[in-house]
């Protein structure tokens, strides 16, 4: 029984590490702030949650230690990391960072223009 959970924990941790690696490649290779932020905030969130879940399962089933802090950590990362990404993107947009030159759609700009016209 222990061996099964060891293997599940191992798979989860390796998956999490791979996701973090993928997000690092995304940060290096993607063209502008917004696409990089997209890669960084989504893939890393899931990667860290996988790593923490693997750690939790390992300590719960192999060492018999139910660590609520790790569960709280998973919940907290899930809650706050996308908000951090949102705020980074938003502040980048409002301080005038250009999008990739092949982007086709800018809905926020249209919305902002509408607000200014209606005022």
């Amino acid at each position: 029984m222990n061996e099964i959970f060891k293997i599940i924990a191992m798979i989860l941790i390796i998956l999490g590490t791979l996701l973090s690696l993928v997000s690092t490649f995304g940060i290096i290779r993607l063209p502008d702030v917004y696409t990089r932020n997209h890669a960084a905030s989504k893939a890393t969130t899931l990667g860290i949650m996988f790593i923490l879940l693997g750690t939790f399962l390992y300590f719960h089933y192999v060492h018999g230690h139910f660590d609520t802090r790790v569960l709280l950590g998973i919940f907290f990362i899930f809650l706050t990391s996308p908000v951090a990404g949102h705020l980074l993107s938003r502040s980048a947009y409002h301080s005038g960072v250009k999008m990739w030159d092949q982007s086709v759609e800018d809905d926020l700009k249209n919305a902002k223009d509408k607000v200014y016209i209606s005022k």
Partner: peptide
């Protein structure tokens, strides 16, 4: 243009944690 709805909503939950 101040619109911090997302940050303020998450703050209300996160502060208690």
């Amino acid at each position: 243009m101040k619109n911090d709805l997302i940050l303020q909503t998450i703050t209300k939950v996160a502060v208690f944690i």
